[in-house]
Design a protein around this nucleic acid. Sequence first.
DNA 1: GATCGCAACTAAAACGATCTAGTACGGTGA
DNA 2: TCACCGTACTAGATCGTTTTAGTTGCGATC
Lengths: 341, 341
Amino acid sequence: MPRSKRVTIADIARQAGVSPGAVSFALNGRPGVSEETRQRILAIADQHDWRPSSTARALVGAHAGVIGFAVNRPARTLGTEAFFTDLIAGVQSSLAARRIGMQLVVVPTLEEELDTYRRWRRANQVDGVLVLDPRVDDPRPELLRTLGLPSITIGGQPSPDGEHATLWLDDSAAAETVFGYLARLGHRHIVYISGAAAHEHVRLRRGVLDAMSARGVRGEVVETDYSPSQVSTVMRSLLSRAELPTAVVFDNDMMAIAGLRVTQEMGVRVPGELSLASFDDSIVTGLVHPSITCLTRDTFLLGERAADFLLEQLDASEVLPDRMGPVPTLTVRESTGRPVS
Amino acid sequence: MPRSKRVTIADIARQAGVSPGAVSFALNGRPGVSEETRQRILAIADQHDWRPSSTARALVGAHAGVIGFAVNRPARTLGTEAFFTDLIAGVQSSLAARRIGMQLVVVPTLEEELDTYRRWRRANQVDGVLVLDPRVDDPRPELLRTLGLPSITIGGQPSPDGEHATLWLDDSAAAETVFGYLARLGHRHIVYISGAAAHEHVRLRRGVLDAMSARGVRGEVVETDYSPSQVSTVMRSLLSRAELPTAVVFDNDMMAIAGLRVTQEMGVRVPGELSLASFDDSIVTGLVHPSITCLTRDTFLLGERAADFLLEQLDASEVLPDRMGPVPTLTVRESTGRPVS
DNA sequence: GATCGCAACTAAAACGATCTAGTACGGTGA
DNA sequence: TCACCGTACTAGATCGTTTTAGTTGCGATC
């Protein structure tokens, strides 16, 4: 059995005629080596294609070279959301350039998520974490602060105290974009078929729709559990009324497509008799017939920004100020038009 | 500044009145401690909620407690594929129970993927890897073998030499299911709108369709690059012919939906004049109108099986024999019916 | 000419596990 | 009585870094 041919810092040091410590200094750009020596060391390291073992690094409490992402969503339904994959892909695109890894776990409960953070911290497995789906009275930022684990919260509103860095989304402006567009088209009776009101963005959107009564728009909200089947039921009863609304807005693309199907089954012309729109876009909304007007978010970009934000936070000593995520734009397609008067 | 209150193996050892080595033995279920002592040690460890640092473990070359997943697909388009998220979710569901982590990276090229494996091996960052999208003359199994990094290949055909464990998919049987179903309905002219022929499954499906000429079915293949726009073009010219085929099969759900849109634009009734089917399912195929008949694969289950397979491979000394992935089933919906004669 | 400061290093202790090579001890067989 | 064996441990090396606490040599300062 041949001797291990693994190259270590000691090999580099030996060849450069210095101690391992000097190599470490040279590599991490800290004082203690002359510029000349530094260059020599780096050249030799490069020549041997040597990179410090991130495991060993992590052990001594330096950088692990890995960020953590614990997603607390039901594993079975994760796949239906393009949001998630887009986000991951964006995060990756930003991390890849800097050769930083990402540890991903799907956790069933909030308690497990907190546990995961504790474990990561203990073993120094990750340098920082991304936190998804902020909630009211969220225990996570608090825990992460006491653990001393840098984090970026994605979504929600700016953190009130500025005590945890947040990449927030301007949900009110987004809602204003959608409802305002319909109002300007001339719609005066808009139904918003929403998901669970427990979500902050649902409440914000409601607020915006309510406020439009000042512009003479009658807003109506129907709450669902996001499931296509419930959307169908709601939609069916809605279209059975004597007087139809002129526009329906859905919380996401799947809901919109489920809604569109009901209009086709019941023979309601879109956009002739009814306009449809969605707060979430995906590739499929442009492929159905008629294609659906959607608020388009660049989730990939959101992921990139979040990763960049976290990486900056890692070598900052203070909690960085909040940032705003990419602003969504309205993609107008075939499903919306002027109401017939 | 208070002393670090991190619990280590030494603390546990001290309290149990034994050496750290004994604790390690007890924990890893190896001989060298009496059953009585083992229980005492485990109880104390449990009481302190102590778990060995996976970083330290990884450094000495024992288990890292993490598996690796390097995905070589364009990051920007990753999100459009529910396949990927479903797979991840399935893998996670299997790993979570055993408290094993997963490191996920998206790599732009094959060369970078190979590099990633080398890096992981060097730092002992992962215990094994999952390999996606097998290709002809695939250099990856070879590299992984020389690196001594256990791996499971997901998809493709059984490995000819049995030298790398593969969770293969029976693509021929799948194709037989779809084309056979249409043939039994009475279809005698089927067009298969496929993705790139470079993919093995595309070739297999073609083969199955060709073989159906023995049953009096005329098969026709049109190759595309998977893009909805190209599918539209192809579909439009197809439906402009004097004599239409009676059934069209697509490689995936998005292509099928793009195709469906063309039928609606051109006023071709589905399934009255034309039946449509897809080799890939997703939530949306059941929501459009008409809903689309699809081959449904349990990708979540595939992920679970792959993870289980890998975990078994980790503590096997030999390369395990190949296994077959979950068999897809046909979900018949509204888009297929008997051809009008 | 002693002292100081500084740059450029080195030596060795961490980090927290695993694992090999021992050791202590009680029992056994001749 | 003594060699021998097995069980149940312990001591200490090891993994590959980072980092702290020196050490050395040299020019400047008073």
